[in-house]
Computed example of a mutant assay.
Amino acid sequence: MKLYLSTGARLLALVAVGATVAACGLPRSGPNKREIYAGSVLKQGDAFVVAVNDRVTRATAVVPALGFGSAFTGAGIMGSDTIAAGDTLSLQVIENVRDEPLLSATGSRVAVLEEVQVDGQGYIFVPYAGRIKAAGQTPEGLRQAITRKLDTQTPDPQVTVNRVAGNGATVTVSGGVGGQGVYPIERPTRTLTAMIAAAGGVAIEPAVALVRVTRGARTGQVWLQDLYDNPSLDIPLRPGDRIVVEEDRRAFVALGATGAQTRVPFDTQTLSAIEAIATVGGLSTNLADPTGVFVFRNEPAEIANNVLGRNDLRGDQRMVYVLDLTQPMGMFHARDFVIRDGDTVYVTEAPFVQWQKTLGAITGSATTADSLASLGSGS
């Protein structure tokens, strides 16, 4: 009778634990290969599952198009002494008369007009000369214009004009630089790289630094490294330009049987699949299936059509790219396949891992049943 109760208790325990395992399922990091393939369009799913080969790597090797348009590159170097609206000028007029001079006090031939502001329309006002267009002129050109205006009222006036950089000849520099602020465009700082240097240089990692310039309604941006490597990108600046240095915000997500499951920012301009896997510690040697490395992505229709050899797709398409690192060319394909912003890199677990978990659950169930049976026999 005692043996019968022990066996009955063991069976009841096994049934209970087995039912629990069946109801809850075994723990795992995500879908397996079979489940991913089951979601393909070929099996009435909503994603295209594509094995990566040389053609696919070429079709998907798209990187962000950065650069400056002709509105920036064709502007030409601005003269360092060009007067702009908002500038402040200092004028000095020497008259050739001592008695009853036009601008200065009696007995003095020198009249100094400090802080003459160039208005929003580009004009200044000079007593007895009237309103004169200053913006767009050099100090020498403005000097001659003032001289012509005054010459009819005072004999042979000697005029000097000094320009002081003001609000009209400045740019704003912000973001990841040593010193954010408003900087004047002067002779040493008429180009983009020179102005960044004047602002204290870049204060973030240069490899992932982007430089964005906004001029009116137009905006262009380049990689900092490309700016230094390609002199043609070192554009001339214009008053009112807004320069922002910022860190690259692109990132991908790593999931599954990898060294870490996390959101990973890009640390280089381009990132391959093999580099992405290495960034998170590589494949987990105890869990990963090297034949099941997947990249999930919403692909633009143009690229999706090219990858699939079609021309009828419209709008973004859900694509699942498959990498098999056990194939002779698998590593090369992973090295050449470009990871893009927003990608999800997922590594499936090896089939034997589920067997191990199943065996562990069964072993644990048997142990539990024995314990329950022991309790039953001891009562």
Rank of each mutant, 00 (worst) to 15 (best):
K2W: 07
Y4T: 14
L5P: 13
L5T: 15
G8H: 06
L11Y: 12
A13Y: 03
V21P: 00
A22K: 06
A23W: 07
C24W: 04
R28A: 08
K33T: 15
K33E: 12
K33N: 12
R34P: 01
E35H: 13
E35R: 10
I36S: 05
Y37Q: 14
G39F: 02
V49L: 09
A51P: 00
N53W: 06
A59L: 06
A59Y: 02
V62N: 04
V63R: 08
A65S: 08
G79M: 00
A84G: 05
A84C: 08
A84Y: 13
A85S: 12
G86I: 02
I94L: 10
I94Y: 07
E95F: 10
V97I: 08
D99C: 01
P101W: 02
P101Y: 04
L102G: 10
L103M: 10
G107M: 04
A111M: 03
V112T: 08
V112L: 01
E114N: 06
E114P: 04
E114Y: 06
E114C: 06
Q121C: 01
G122P: 04
P127R: 00
A129G: 08
G130D: 13
G130L: 06
G130R: 09
A135R: 06
T138M: 10
E140Q: 15
G141Q: 14
R143S: 12
K149A: 15
K149N: 14
D151N: 13
T152Q: 15
T152F: 14
D156V: 11
V159I: 01
T160R: 09
A165H: 12
G166E: 08
N167H: 00
V171W: 00
G179V: 14
E186Q: 14
E186V: 07
P188V: 05
A194P: 05
A197M: 11
A198S: 07
I204E: 04
P206T: 10
L210I: 14
R212P: 05
V213F: 10
R215G: 06
G216Q: 10
G220K: 10
L224I: 08
Q225L: 03
Q225E: 07
D226G: 09
D234L: 03
P236C: 05
P236T: 08
V244I: 12
E246A: 13
R249S: 15
R250K: 11
V253T: 15
V253R: 09
G256M: 01
T258Q: 02
T258F: 04
G259M: 11
D267M: 13
T270N: 12
T270G: 01
G282P: 01
L283H: 03
D289K: 15
V295W: 03
N298R: 01
N298D: 07
N311E: 05
G315T: 07
G315H: 08
D316K: 13
Q317D: 01
V320S: 00
V320L: 00
Y321G: 00
Y321E: 09
M329Q: 12
D336E: 13
I339G: 02
R340K: 15
G342K: 07
V345K: 00
Y346K: 10
V347D: 04
A350G: 06
V353Q: 11
K357E: 15
G360V: 02
A361I: 14
I362S: 11
S365F: 00
T367V: 14
A373R: 05
S374C: 10
G376W: 14
G378E: 04
